[in-house]
Every structure is written in structure tokens, then in C-alpha cells.
Design a protein around this nucleic acid. Structure first.
Lengths: 283, 283
DNA sequence: CGAACGCCAAACGAAAATGCATGGATATCG
DNA sequence: CGATATCCATGCATTTTCGTTTGGCGTTCG
């Protein structure tokens, strides 16, 4: 049995097509077909049913899936074990945060860190989807919710105040009413966020004018007069063309958390960056 | 990272040399060297120290060893999961037992089974070393001690009586003495066996003439006049040229156990053979 | 209803991995 | 001390694997 074929098996399970699996692994579709055929031959079992809409697992394929996934777990852990041992202050560091947090909170710290440790290549990915620390899609993740994944070391970073903002000189709404006002809010997928709920309660009669999952975009929309927006104060207070509106009650603030995988605990460059971040943001 | 390289890494760890690892995997020494070099390159770490007496793990190699072993565990479990699902009464079955048990107890049953299920290829390995059920070095193991390994299903099969045997017509010793008698016993490595201890106590003044780890050999030596031997009665009672000696106290008997891996519980051919064995030996 | 796009399978040539043979270094044994 | 065995590294021929390309099929969209 060729262990590499297990990796291919997993890719096909997840993508459902040979082409998709090939793209995921950086190989080609004919290769995937051949490797799968060879794998099935050595096992003496058909692992997938070839259906019009892709490859779906047979009972036999389902039976081995859990083992294949555990093999992958260990393969990933193996790589982490090595990375975690690196003691030199060089190499790559991959961070993840929300857009505005990266731009307004992290950027200054990262610039300073980059000067201090020129051999460390820092990569900041601002993406709303959650990157997987176990797969090492990121080494260090900043987010506004605590971490629940196992094997992740996390700590609360700072409390972020939020504020209601409007374009400079525009009319201010009244708490509990908001008739005639227009709102810029988070994307529908983020409807559960506290500030969205607060808006609904504080300005129940206001209409939603636009949505975006990007706080920067919301701020810009707000400045151009599209409507009122709830923004993190570190962002809102620095954007030109908008001013904070006090309607007697502030939107709820949020805690920011930072987390990394336990296996990277001894990674010197990660430690150094985290120390600087805490130094600059917490103290 | 090529998952197959992990398998090669493990082989080199266990053999200590490239050549040995190559033989184990059915590859060649240059291939092992090149694959290892490539593996170390992709990980960016040296995994082995090249010493005069072989390849020994570095700290980094030690760090990933546990993960590599767990990957192997899952690879083996993956194969078992498929084999364990086979419902047809065909394929191979690998058994393991002690020599005399295989020859005198199992052979008749296996012959009958082979006639009943001609498409099942039964392979009986009589080997004193313990085969590993997890690695599927054997599907079904008979032994005289309970199973302690995890994930092994076992049951007590039969109680085997032992007896003291001597060549036909030779002199019989006295309990508690044995002066002048010569003994044929188990190999030194098996010194802890109950029958060896019993001999020491029952015939303290007798000398050990010969040793063997093979009960058949012991029986033959006994028949040729080399000395007294403690043998399982199913063996001793059927060997020509020896007779059982009653010195007033019989050597201790032993329980025989049979075990197989949990993953093979639903393997039809294994179930069929085990049922027949129980039918013929227990009832 | 035709064009375009996705999928997979098969054929072919290029690239990579493998095995074989060799050489050098070191330990073992007669 | 020479002969032998075992080990690893290297060069070369061969096999295997891979990527590219092509063709066939079904679905989707204009």
C-alpha cells in the first residue's frame, strides 16, 4: 500500500471530483484517476461509486475514511512538531485577523516587528472565514470570539469599544426610534453579531441601506453618506469624513482573542511577535 | 510532504541501516538514501545522525517518531477495516500456534476445514515468537497465555494436561529425588514455564541433559533415550517409543487461548474456522 | 437549440524515480 | 595482516510515473 494514495483518497472524498482533488493537491486529473485506480486495486475494494455528479464513497470507502483522516491528523502533527522546534528568528509567520483589525491595530505592530526581525517573513491574511490552526492554515489567529478548538492556546487580548458613526454634519437619530435613518450593517451571514442586534433595538425604525462583511467598506460607505454604521472605535475614530454619534447609549464592545496551536508554543519567532503584540496593544 | 516517505523513515529507524530498511520494504539501498534525503529536505531538518554504526535519530527525528508511528497504526487499521468486512468464504487465513499444538491439535481440524471451504487458503505458522495481531502478522493466534494486547478478542479454548514421559522400558525416578535421571527441558529462554519449575521441584537431583524450544524435538529426544521430558499429553500419548511415568504427582496443566483482532470480528472465513475449532476441540 | 463548460477516460511523450553496478570506507574474522 | 563482509554514495540504464492533449459525454446557459 502506498501511503501517498491515502492523501489522494482524502482529496477525492472532499472534492467529489478528480479535477477538484487534483487542483487541491497540485496534481492533474489523469493522475488522480490513475492513483485512485491503483489504490483500489491494491486494497482489492472499490472505494467510490462513479455517479453522474461525482465520486461518492462506497461502504468500504466509508469504512476506511476515519483511518485516512487520522493518518492526515498525524501527518499534520508531524510537520507541526518540527516547526515548533525552530529556535531561530527567521522563517515565515502566517497571521489571520479581520480586515479592520489587521489594518488599524496590527499593521503598526507588524511594521515594527518586521524592522526588528528582518529575517522573519510575516504574512497577514484578512479573511472572515475561520482558518484552521491544526492544518496550519495560519500560525496565529486574531478573532472576536474565544477559541474552542482543542490543542489551541489562546488568551484575551484587548477589549474593543464600538461606536455609532455618521457622515460629518449629517442628522443624528434618536435612541429607540431612528425613523428616516439609513443603516450600513454587516453581511447577512453575520446577523448574529451583537452590534447588529443593538442597532435593531436602538434604532428600530431605521432602514438597512447596505450591507458588507467588511468594516472598512462600511466606514467608507458611511463617509459617503450611505447611512449610519456601527464601527470599532479604533477604526471609526481614524476614518476621515465620519463622526461618532452619541445617542445616549453606546453599542456593546467586544473582546479580541488571539490563539495559536500548542505545538507551536516553542516557535521563537511566534513568541517574539506575540510578545510585541501584547506589549503594544495590551499595555 | 510525501506520506510514503514516512514509511521509509520508520523502516530506517527500526533497522538502523539503509540496506536493512530497503530489504524490509522490498526496495533498494540507493532508493532509501535518496528518499530519506528528499524527506529531510522537504522538512528542512536532519532526521538522522550518520554514525559509524548506522543511522540514529536526531532530536528532530525523535520528535516526529511518535507521529510517524501513529500514522502507521492508522495505515494498518485501514487495511484491517477492509479485510474485516469481507463476507465471502474465500481468501487467506494466517494462523499461529506452537509447534506441537499445530501438529497434533489443529492439523486435523484444519484438514477438515480445508475440505469444507476449498477457496480459503489456510496458512499455519508455528513459531515461538509472538506474532502481532495489530500488524496482521497473523489473523488467529493460539497460545498458552491470556491475551493482554488491546483490541484483541480472545477466549479460553481448552485445558491441556501435561505428563512426565520416559523412553519405553526405562527406569522410573522417584518424586522428590531424581538422582541419576537425565532431563530434556525447554529452552533456557522459557525457563519461567510452570512445567520447568515443576521438574525442578519434583526431581531436584536430576541433571538437564538437553534443551529445546520444540516439544516435538523433546519428545523425539525422549524416545531415543536422552532423558525424561514433560510433554503435553495430546502429544506425549501419541508419540511412539515413550510412555507416561506416574511418580505420584502430575505436572501442572495449562490453558490454551485463542485470540484475533477486533477489526476481524466480521470476517466470515475467520468466524467459520473458529467455530469449527471450538466445535472439535472444546466440545 | 446550439455553444460552452464541466466532468472522466485514453494515448503519447517527457520527466522522475528506481534498480543495478561500482567504488571507497570501515569493521570482522581467520 | 590480508580476505571478507557490510555499509553508504555515485553514475548510468531502465522502468515507472506524470503532464499534456485529445475525445466523448452530460449539463447549463444564452
Amino acid at each position: 500500500m502506498n501511503w501517498s494514495d491515502v492523501e489522494i483518497f482524502l482529496a477525492i472524498v472532499r472534492e467529489g471530483t478528480l479535477g477538484g482533488a487534483a487542483r487541491r493537491l497540485g496534481l492533474t486529473q489523469p493522475t488522480m484517476g490513475r492513483r485512485l485506480k491503483a489504490f483500489e486495486a491494491t486494497l482489492g475494494q472499490m472505494l467510490f461509486q462513479r455517479t453522474p455528479d461525482g465520486f461518492v464513497l462506497t461502504d468500504e470507502g466509508t469504512a476506511i475514511l476515519v483511518h485516512a483522516e487520522r493518518m492526515e491528523e498525524e501527518a499534520l502533527a508531524l510537520r507541526r512538531a518540527l516547526v515548533g522546534q525552530e529556535r531561530q528568528l527567521e522563517g515565515a509567520l502566517r497571521l489571520s485577523s479581520s480586515d479592520w483589525f489587521g489594518a488599524h491595530m496590527l499593521s503598526p505592530v507588524l511594521a515594527e516587528f518586521s524592522l526588528q526581525h528582518p529575517k522573519v517573513l510575516v504574512e497577514l491574511v484578512t479573511d472572515s472565514r475561520l482558518l484552521n490552526l491544526s492544518r496550519r492554515e495560519a500560525d496565529l489567529v486574531f478573532r472576536i470570539a474565544p477559541f474552542t478548538e482543542p490543542d489551541v492556546i489562546s488568551r484575551k487580548l484587548i477589549h474593543i469599544e464600538y461606536g455609532l458613526y455618521a457622515a460629518d454634519g449629517s442628522e443624528h437619530p434618536n435612541l429607540g426610534d431612528g425613523a428616516g435613518a439609513r443603516l450600513v450593517t454587516m453581511d447577512e451571514a453575520f446577523g448574529g453579531m451583537p452590534d447588529v442586534a443593538w442597532l435593531k433595538r436602538a434604532l428600530p425604525k431605521a432602514d438597512v441601506a447596505m450591507r458588507s462583511n467588511n468594516r472598512e467598506v462600511q466606514a467608507t460607505l458611511c463617509a459617503r453618506g450611505a447611512g449610519l454604521a456601527v464601527l470599532p472605535r479604533p477604526l471609526g475614530d481614524t476614518v476621515a469624513g465620519i463622526e461618532r454619534v452619541d445617542i445616549g447609549e453606546a453599542p456593546p464592545g467586544r473582546d479580541t482573542w488571539v490563539g495559536y496551536h500548542r505545538d507551536l508554543k516553542r516557535l521563537a519567532r511566534l513568541r517574539a511577535l506575540l510578545d510585541l503584540v501584547i506589549e503594544r496593544l495590551v499595555n
